[in-house]
Amino acid sequence: MLSRLRSLLYLLPQFWRMLFTRPVTVRYPFAPLKLPSYFRGKVTIDPELCRGCGMCARDCPAFALELERESRDNFRLIHYHDRCAYCGQCEASCNFGAIKLVNEFVPAAPQRDTLSRVMVRRDNEEA
């Protein structure tokens, strides 16, 4: 009889406990969201370290990185946020540690062209 009643009102003890526990809802975007340090978010490229070797562009599965090279020291590396899949392959492929995926969200944009693009440009005239 008692076990029958228990099977009918099974969740009631759980409900009682829920009254004394905080809800798990995260109030994002009204409250900040904690991102782990390894989070693969925004792509940053360090212009000092980038040598324009193009390994990142070769390994990018989404073709989000483009390297335009005129000579050994004249190149442009462009990262398109709208194509990026944030897989982190560029970071792994970069031999010079120039690309980092930092734990920040990339803000949404209403149009593709208004999305920010990271661009690294080097025009070494003195070389």
């Binding site: 782990p36 390894y38 989070f39 693969r40 899949a85 944030y86 897989c87 982190g88 392959q89």
Partner: peptide
């Protein structure tokens, strides 16, 4: 925390 992505772990 381990991989940097909730579903796409890479």
């Amino acid at each position: 925390e381990l991989s940097g992505g909730r579903v796409a772990h890479a």
